[in-house]
């Protein structure tokens, strides 16, 4: 939660403002965010690469950490999305049906380069922590980071 919003909510809880005023203040703060120092105020540069970093911390005996570092050019992803558009309609239906069978109700024809741009915009820094607990292996933690640069 950002600092301004927290202050407004504190004012609301202290009874200094009523709910309507607090709502107006929050919407004003959201509409006009304060300029922060440095690069955040400047328009964000277009992402060139999609990075996937996987780091595992194994507790096991002579095993060490496993690291995966993948850098995929965005140009390749964009071309891949365009390539999906070349799939003939019959084949596309078959792919959609197969994906639906596996629990992914997804329409390939809906994938467009614009969607990819939207996805990338949202994908500022995604980090997923996965706990792996195998019966024959020591307990380990895996951190998966997906981000653009």
């Amino acid at each position: 939660m950002n600092e301004n919003r927290r202050q407004i909510l504190e004012m609301l809880s202290a009874g200094q403002v009523n709910a309507d005023e607090a709502e107006r203040l929050i919407s004003a703060v959201e509409k006009d965010p304060p300029p922060s120092n440095g690069s955040a105020s400047s328009p964000k540069a277009k992402a060139k690469y999609l990075r996937v970093v996987v780091e595992s911390e194994e507790d096991g005996r002579d095993h060490g950490p496993v690291k995966v570092n993948v850098r995929v050019p965005m140009q390749l992803l964009r071309a891949g999305v365009k390539l999906a558009g070349l799939i003939p309609a019959q084949a596309r239906d078959q792919v959609n049906a197969a994906m639906r069978e596996h629990g992914m109700a997804f329409d390939l024809s809906q994938i467009r380069p614009e969607n990819l741009e939207e996805l990338v915009e949202q994908l500022n820094d995604l980090s997923v922590d996965v706990d792996v607990d195998d019966a024959d292996k020591a307990k380990s933690k895996v951190k998966v980071k997906v981000f653009c640069e």
């Binding site: 690469y49 140009q75 964009r78 365009k82």
Partner: peptide, 24 residues
């Protein structure tokens, strides 16, 4: 022509791809 162009873009997009998997 569109197919050719997209296949070319895929090939060109491969430039600067980097994959590293390391284990002790």
């Amino acid at each position: 022509l569109r197919a050719l162009s997209i296949v070319w873009q895929v090939c060109a997009g491969l430039t600067n791809t980097y994959i590293e998997v390391s284990h002790p």
